[in-house]
Write a protein that binds this DNA or RNA. Structure first.
Lengths: 203, 203
DNA sequence: AGTTAAACCGACCGCCAGGTCGGTCGTATT
DNA sequence: AATACGACCGACCTGGCGGTCGGTTTAACT
């Protein structure tokens, strides 16, 4: 195999496994040795590609997580006329319990923020960036929805976006205590109620 | 000072400081030495009262956190006729940014669940217990509200409770990125919209 | 074939934080 | 006064994990 290709393969293997383990065990509970053993790689291999554990984590967040969030939760916002439907649909898809990995991207955002706050500035900054990207886009979509009369004029788009994101982040935490499929159904159902209160009164 | 009294004082000092630091830095980022230095206590003092760091944390959760959650978020549920008003008021008070500590109890519940999942079974179990206590009580209150026509008949009380708690947990995470006072206002505002959609249609 | 530099190996280092333990001090009991 | 015991001290131990580094393999180029 070509060298630079092999390199990319190794980096990819490290990142996907890393994402998996980080999401399961949290940042501090994760140790590199476990990851490396599972991949049959050595310390040397790791430190050849990444300069530290923190660097590794940031790389994963800025690439895998950011991309996934964008693809699942940001980009779909502008595919429909009605922003509320678009949001609903994107959340529905994002919560699809298909591949185990996908379930994870929500967690990373919320839960690591506390674990990493204070120390590891750079790391939590990269997580906050993603959240903010999502939020800003959602606000924009909602504002546009106002103009098209899909959203009531009097509502506070910033507040709505923050609220939706909050409920999404918190919901993923709650899902650990309940049946995921049922929790998803419940969540979307309530979100639907909430959304109804944001629509313009039927003319 | 009497001996057993002095003992209690020391334990109390440890716990309150511990709660403070754990909430700020997370479980793994917190080291006992820092806590002990700030309190001018020794390793020996600590291990005389607690058998391990984990034991210490569980003790804090089961005492301080559980009590606070109960006093702030569970007990107030049954003080009013209308459950939705009661919930709203309890959340309002719980989010009061008065003492810095109070802001914290929300975090502990949600964010540590991920950090501690997998390992530290006992710890996360104690956190889950508290969440469940809250949830069960809220469901009960909502069901009672149905009978008194404060809540629409068709709504799913379990779903509503899970949704409210989710949004609360997620909201505390979001508060780290925004102005807390403003975030609180936004949050309660949106919750009010949501609650309106749960009330019986005006007869 | 010879050379170069990448990808990779794995033994080793050093720090740090949880936990131990023998000892001291102060208070209660006789 | 003597004894006992609980509260506390702090030097020390220890294991785990992030990180290092000299060496080895292997692909690419001449």
């Amino acid at each position: 195999m070509e060298k630079h290709l092999k390199s990319k393969v190794t980096i990819n293997r490290l990142c996907y496994k890393g994402l998996d383990v980080f999401a399961q065990k949290g940042y501090h509970n994760t140790n590199l040795n476990d990851i490396l053993r599972e991949l049959c790689l050595s310390k040397g291999a790791f430190y050849h590609h990444f300069k530290s554990k923190e660097d590794f984590f940031v790389y994963i967040v800025q690439n895998l997580v950011a991309q996934k969030i964008y693809a699942l939760l940001v980009e779909p916002l502008s595919t429909q006329e009605d922003p509320l439907s678009a949001i609903m649909e994107s959340l529905d898809k994002a919560l699809e319990p298909g591949k185990s990995n996908e379930l994870i991207y929500g967690f990373m955002l919320g839960d690591f923020l506390t674990e990493l706050d204070g120390k590891q500035e750079e790391v939590s900054a990269s997580l906050k960036d993603i959240l903010q990207m999502w939020e800003v886009n959602m606000i924009g979509t909602l504002k546009k929805g106002k103009l098209d009369d899909h959203v009531a004029r009097h509502i506070d788009c910033e507040g709505v976006a923050a609220y939706i994101i909050s409920s999404y982040l918190g919901m993923r935490t709650m899902m650990m205590n309940h049946n995921p499929k049922h929790a998803k159904y419940q969540y979307l159902q309530q979100l639907r109620h909430y959304f109804n209160s944001l629509r313009p009164a039927a003319a």
